[in-house]
Amino acid sequence: MGEDELKLIRRSLDGDKNAWGEIVKRYKISVFGVALGILGNPADAEDAAQDAFIRAYQGLHTFHLDKRFSTWIFAITANLCKNKLRRDRLLAPLKYITRATQSHHNPEAQLAQDQRSQTMRDALDQLSPKYRMPLVLRYYGDLEYKEIAEMMKLPEGTVKTRIHRAKSELKRLLEQKGVVGHART
């Protein structure tokens, strides 16, 4: 963390909202990415990102300045996403299935750089959230297994297994769509 970032956090702790605005500016795209990766829906991800920054400001005194800020804010984001998924599962069990099948009509599809990315996006959407969350945090959020385990309140071994299974499933889905050859790993 840069010294200026530490200063921004200290100013935010003192109640300087503009300093917090600067922190939001710096982290919004990555926090949005984490939320979008986990939830799969841009509107929900936008809400989650906004909530995450508000929650983080309220709980800023619990942040240890010698830790990575990104890890901490991603943890808050992931927890909010987890709660949202739990709520949605209770209210509308079919919502995610519908979303996964609809994703071909999404305008973002036109922006995909190649077929591999597009297929990967669909494949990610088809993964169950319990596999998608650790995968997103590990490879997009750059978190350690240990940090993910703490956040998800799971043993580290379980996190590793879920990530391994998620990757195997992704590979299978990509192979099924014919965008990659059979696994050589």
């Binding site: 991800a45 973002e108 997009y140």
Partner: peptide, 12 residues
């Protein structure tokens, strides 16, 4: 995986 999420976030 990473690139896909980055692209997706950028698209929105």
């Amino acid at each position: 995986i990473k690139e896909t999420i980055v692209q997706r976030a950028q698209a929105h």
